[in-house]
Nucleic acid binder design. Structure first.
Lengths: 212, 212
DNA sequence: ACATACATGTAATGCGTTACATGATTAC
DNA sequence: GTAATCATGTAACGCATTACATGTATGT
């Protein structure tokens, strides 16, 4: 039920259409939760039929735009969900799973996988860091909308937790980058020991990082 | 298609039954990839019908035990999957999503969520660290089985990459622990500023960690 | 005219969770 | 005898991915 909450949460900042939500998930918020529009539109319809949100249908010529706003029942549901404990269902990470099978691959293939991981999280890091800066400098349009409809006494709390969320993403990206670099070191070390004909190397450098 | 690969990968260490695989996912390997037995058994049957694995049916009295072993086609499929690039589909993390909605909650509720996060990853950290030690000291039964059926020249590579995978998990757990601690700091800071009637605090301490 | 952005949907297929369901063997 | 462990399944429901499908408004 997390997608519902993600959408509800965004709609509490400001009434929006499914298209708007899709764009936000693609651009900024999507680095916390993603969904394609094929999931967004039916979910909005469903929440509307349950009385959590309500659509204001705007027409520009022959084009329809359904702008949803959160009803009291929606706020209650969101608060209930936010307060309930997170259910930590098992880990599922394709990159780490793949890493656990790298002995099947050539060192070139292993290197390519770690490099791709490094590049992916370097890009994410830039995006997340820019989000943190946008919040700190008051440039985030969603946050600005949210502040407008919030009691000034609550502003510090709102900003502090928004920052905290993105900082968590920044920390995670840094950790994935460090892991990919460690993986590349491991590959380099295996490559050196293969060249020198020593079959018992590489474990030394691999072991160091864990106790750092 | 990751579950198939996870199961295939484990079966390359040693022929096993669905029950064995379920236990391993619950105990050790599950901290890389999880699945309930309701997913495992049908997946094994399907892979059998596709000729990737083959069952050796053992009977103890009236009890049936289907021990699967990987066929050549299964090895090929696994190697193909392992070598293809990871597809990074968008982020989806309930804990971070919830954190982004904490302004809806009381500071007590926020604290409870961060504490739960901290406890969860502290437990995971212990498990993953013990896995790293099990591999380094040669205590892992799955790794021992795998080494038996592997060319000694490849032992260093096998051990190095297994370590690397679990080290990645250790690093991630540390990062989540650090984030939860940062969240608790944020809560404490907001609590202090609420008591002293200052409505503009907390952002200072929250901002520091990003540039550390 | 043509491309791009706006705007909203459906359908098929597969993955994941929870609950239901059954029965044999072993240890106490 | 009874509880735990061994052992294997099915079913219902919801979430996620990809592809298919349609049409308007705007800028060049």
């Amino acid at each position: 039920m997390s997608l519902r909450s993600a959408l509800l949460g965004l709609l509490t900042a400001e009434p929006m259409s499914g298209y708007d939500l899709d764009r936000i998930l693609d651009e900024t918020f999507g680095y916390v939760w993603t969904a394609p529009h094929s999931q967004i539109y039916p979910t909005l319809r469903q929440m509307e039929s349950e009385g959590l949100i309500e659509a204001d249908v705007q027409r520009t010529g022959g084009r329809e735009r359904r702008v949803y706003r959160v009803l009291d029942k929606g706020y209650d549901e969101l608060r209930r969900w936010a307060g309930e404990p997170v259910s930590y269902t098992g880990e599922r990470d394709t990159a780490h799973l793949k890493a656990s099978m790298m002995h099947l691959l050539s060192l070139e293939q292993c290197e390519a996988i770690f490099r791709a991981h490094l590049n992916y999280y370097r890009q994410r890091l830039l995006i997340w860091e820019s989000r943190v800066e946008a919040i700190q400098s008051g440039q985030s349009p969603i946050l600005k909308a949210r502040l407008r409809s919030t009691d000034p006494d609550e502003h510090a709390k709102l900003i502090a937790f928004k920052l905290c969320g993105y900082e968590g993403s920044v920390m995670r990206a840094r950790s994935e980058i460090a892991w990919a670099e460690h993986g590349l070191d491991t590959v380099a070390s295996l490559r050196r020991s293969a060249e020198s004909g020593d079959s018992s190397a590489a474990t030394g450098s691999a072991a160091t990082i864990v106790h750092s």
